[in-house]
Simulated assay, not measured.
Amino acid sequence: MKFVIIGGTGLIGSKVVAGLRERGHEAVAAAPSTGVNTLTGEGLAEVMTGASVVVDLSNSPSFEDGPVLEFFQTSTRNLLAAEAAAGVGHHVALSVVGAEDLPDSGYLRAKVAQHRLIEDSSIPYTIVQATQFFEFVRGIADSATEGDTVRMAPVSFQPIAGEDVARAVGKAALGEPVNGRVEVGGPERFRMDEFFRDALAAWNDPREVVTDPHARYFGTELKERSLVPGDDAPLGEIRYRDWPGRVPAAE
């Protein structure tokens, strides 16, 4: 069975490719570096030949409102058109838990636009919505930094290891299309401000984490459950305290 993994050389994509190959499937890592460009359409027709499932893990190089919307709309339209022409039977896309409920974020508005294109296409689909990756924790802290302080809201936070995200995406790709969304989150739920206070302490980071109910998360204020999946969502296996990247590697 042939799987095409768009963004297959990236953080999640490379893990999905490896997992599918271990199961004996043909998994093609498609990215600009391998001659496949979803924005220009280069290489799409060729890579789709014989494909049963396409997994879209692409991401915009810019998070600015205009460029990120243009990326996801153009890329998704090109991808879906190529899939339809090739007779692909299942489109799997990775997205973000809570995207529909945070309209003040330009990035999440772009993801919602991507959802709509997928839902309106003729191709059976599964959208996997994951919580924030462990690998992005430092970037989230940096985005919330003002001087020597990091402003975080006292809301629920349930991050997940990239490895667990890859497993969830792989499971979706191997399964039947649900023609809907599947959420996945980390195995533990934290209070966001407390989580980052502990994380910075583990990094020996001198910045102070300040609890602020109005702290903005990539441009939007958060509600208590904005960043956590539903209560019946499957959970990852790797706890943050056991994740190797939790503390800086020894030099």
Rank of each mutant, 00 (worst) to 15 (best):
R216M: 14
V16H: 05
G41L: 05
L117Y: 01
L227E: 06
E135R: 04
G185Y: 05
D193S: 15
M48H: 07
R225D: 15
R167K: 15
R23I: 02
T34P: 09
G180H: 15
T34Q: 01
Q132P: 04
D142V: 12
F3C: 11
T9V: 10
E100S: 04
A130R: 11
L69V: 00
I140K: 00
I6V: 09
L235P: 05
A199W: 03
L227H: 08
P229F: 15
G98P: 04
H214R: 01
I6Y: 03
T149M: 11
E135M: 02
L200D: 08
G41H: 12
T145R: 14
Y240M: 14
G219S: 03
R189A: 00
A250V: 15
S121K: 13
L102W: 11
A153M: 03
K2G: 09
V165K: 02
H115T: 12
D65W: 14
A85V: 04
P103V: 00
H91I: 03
T211F: 13
S14I: 13
T126G: 07
P177F: 08
G41K: 07
V4R: 07
R241A: 13
G230A: 15
E64A: 13
Q132M: 00
S226T: 13
G66K: 14
P103Y: 06
A249M: 14
S105F: 02
F195D: 05
R246Q: 09
S14R: 14
G87S: 15
R207C: 08
A18G: 07
A45P: 04
A93I: 12
P61M: 07
V88D: 00
V88Q: 04
A161Q: 10
F195L: 10
P67W: 13
A249P: 00
P124K: 01
K223E: 02
L235A: 11
L200F: 12
L79I: 14
G19D: 07
E176Y: 13
R216D: 10
R207T: 10
E251N: 12
A215H: 11
P206S: 12
D164Y: 04
D232A: 13
H214Y: 11
V96F: 08
V88P: 11
M1P: 02
P159F: 06
L235F: 01
F3A: 07
R116N: 02
S52W: 00
G35I: 03
D164V: 08
V36R: 01
A84V: 06
V228E: 03
R109D: 09
P103N: 08
